[in-house]
Design a protein around this nucleic acid. Structure first.
Length: 196
DNA sequence: ATGCAGATTGACT
DNA sequence: GTCAATCTGCATA
């Protein structure tokens, strides 16, 4: 199977629209001759000055500066003293900052490698949460700022278009901006972090 | 099944 | 000094 990365233009839209568009696409990670693939089941949109839950809310800092780039870059940050979270930057050059947090996916290929990276054997415990997903796909601060239109990390369309049933909910684990329903979940999948 | 505390470090006030 | 876009193990029911 050959995977064709989506072009940068795919990401040049608002975080909200990108978060919706990413549901059902494939996240592909190449590492040490292994091809790891997951079908994205859960995302969250984060904005800029309009969104108090976003890292970009108070302007540019050393940590969040890739959120201010144009769409199609990886924003990977470290949190809770031990976890990474993976985001995809959204938007156009010189537009509003924003990104989409990838919260969950369904493992499709490279499952043995994912289990090894994660140190667990349960299929349902590999990609069902933003930090678990980073661990199973070996995503860490080294990938912060890379472009997502080529290996070792990119998005591609699902050739076997699967059934999607997308629901929006408030975002998880935040204390501000709870009124926004900016989380997207494919409730047709078992591989999601928290069932709405 | 649901709930809570602890882990552990770096970014920001 | 505070606390985080989380996960885990243990407790209770």
């Amino acid at each position: 199977m050959r995977y064709e990365p989506l072009p940068i233009g795919f990401y040049e839209t608002t975080p909200y629209r990108l978060a919706r568009r990413l549901i059902g696409t494939l996240l592909v990670r190449i590492i040490d001759n292994h091809i790891l693939v997951g079908r994205i089941t859960e995302t969250e949109a984060y904005g800029g000055a309009d969104d108090p839950a976003s890292h970009a809310y108070r302007g540019v800092t050393e940590r969040n500066r890739v959120m201010f780039k144009s769409g199609g870059y990886a924003y990977v940050y470290f949190t809770y003293g031990m976890h990474y979270c993976f985001n995809i930057v959204a938007g156009k050059e010189n537009g509003e900052p924003g990104a989409v947090l990838i919260r969950a996916a369904e493992p499709l290929s490279g499952i043995e490698m994912m289990k090894k990276l994660r140190g667990k054997n349960s299929l349902h415990d590999l990609l069902t949460g933003p930090a678990k997903l980073c661990q199973s796909l070996a995503i860490d601060r080294q990938l912060n700022g890379i472009r997502l239109d080529q290996p070792p990390l990119f998005i591609t369309r699902d050739p076997n278009r699967n059934q999607l049933t997308v629901r929006t909910t408030p975002r998880i684990g935040i204390k501000a901006g709870l009124e926004k329903k900016w989380r997207f979940v494919n409730i047709a999948s078992d591989h999601i972090s928290v069932r709405p």
